[in-house]
Design a protein around this nucleic acid. Structure first.
Lengths: 227, 227
DNA sequence: AACGGTAGCGAACAAAGTTCGCAATTGCAA
DNA sequence: TTGCAATTGCGAACTTTGTTCGCTACCGTT
């Protein structure tokens, strides 16, 4: 007859379930980042131990997929009204803003498959806009793939930069300045163009860079419409 | 006085150095893939133990960066002659072909920073072509960033698919067919466009998909030239 | 009141990256 | 040739991670 854990003592510790686990992972993603998001840490955050999580989640991969869709749910959906190009610009801008704000969000999305309801909702919106633009089904599907990839990968690259900054202790702009310095001091005989353009090669203006690539792509798409 | 390891016995085991370590990693990347590329395995391939590697390489990250540049060296360089657009198409096509052929090559490039000589050579070529096209320095730098990202990320996505296939045991087209099936059987009320376009959403035609996105992008770039 | 299924979790495992300190070897100078 | 210092190899160990096993305790039903 063991009495150690005081018989009733107040808080009974709410039972574990998937939503609570995902919520804990969500909180930790912000707090410690994707690289430090471990099963043990998620468990500790729920005041339990890692083994318990496996009653509710097959493995870490499943948890990350759940988390990825959770994140996707935080990206605002754009209403399917108005001219298609403005809609796509809105979608892209919002998505990037959100993904860049949320720590490691883009890296997470890039590493998981988009089959959760929230991610599907965004794909649905993109496809709708592209069909409204007048693209044939096949081209719309292809364009949607590239559109989502563009956003995700751009944001993922930003996240990688941020993560690198976190590791080195320097901040983002210091890291970029360093890269510019390296470009500038390469042998001009071997890499003349790199050296000449060094100052533009790691500019600290992600917004403009993102907008530039997006507009390029949308211009191409508009051209595609006239066959 | 210990005689155990037979005094002279033929092969003396060549000394370790960076090139030999990188070569071993290169061989293993093909043989076992990026996920199974461990320091211990690299060491074993050189008939030594993991600890020895650290005399020649700071850590695994450095080795991966070295390996990434090695891989980049296997992507053929395109001569800086002829019309800029054809050059860019050649570069992109060659790079993708190579990266898709070499197991996990693109994933590796996506996860490392492009500061080795081979990767720089490719950047130089891209920048040169874009300058020749008549872009202003700033735009050329931005466009080069997006160009290389497009190739890398496309190939990285293919690599992820291949890796997923390797894990599940199914092959690439089975996986895509499965994805198509999932899209098709979603609730049509919530995701009408996805369901309607399901058959195009995970098509098994990477070449066409790549070409489509590339042309879109180049079209946009051409438009940019007329200011 | 008994009992069967489920949830929690302590303990342990295997794999990985990395470090430490010692032994062997090598290169260089006298 | 000899002696010494610097380099190199590496066995052993530490840490962290994902994951599994099997026991215990509980909960709801009959």
């Amino acid at each position: 007859m063991v009495f150690l854990p005081a018989p009733d003592r107040a808080a009974k510790k709410a039972p574990l379930d998937r939503p609570r686990i995902v919520a804990a992972a969500r909180a930790l993603l912000d707090a410690v980042g994707l690289d430090e998001l471990t099963m043990r840490r998620v468990a500790k955050h729920l005041d339990t131990r890692a083994a318990s999580l496996y009653r509710h989640v097959r493995d870490k991969d499943e948890l990350l997929n759940l988390l990825a869709d959770e994140i996707a749910g935080e990206v605002p959906l754009i209403r399917a009204k108005g001219p298609w190009r403005a809609r796509l610009v809105n979608m892209a801008t919002q998505a990037r803003r959100t993904l860049s704000t949320l720590r490691d969000a883009a890296r997470l999305l890039a590493g998981t498959r988009p089959m959760g309801p929230n991610r599907l909702a965004h794909i649905e919106g993109t496809l709708k806009a592209l069909c409204d633009a007048g693209l044939a089904p096949r081209e719309a599907a292809w364009a949607a793939y590239h559109f989502n990839n563009y956003i995700n990968e751009f944001a993922a690259d930003e996240a990688r930069l941020a993560a690198a900054a976190a590791v080195t202790g320097l901040d983002r702009s210091a890291l970029l300045a360093d890269a510019r310095g390296r470009f500038a001091s390469l042998p001009a005989a071997t890499f003349p163009t790199i050296v000449a353009l060094a100052e533009h090669l790691a500019e600290d203006d992600a917004d403009a860079l993102f907008r530039f690539g997006l507009d390029l792509w949308l211009d191409g798409l508009e051209g595609q419409l006239g066959r």
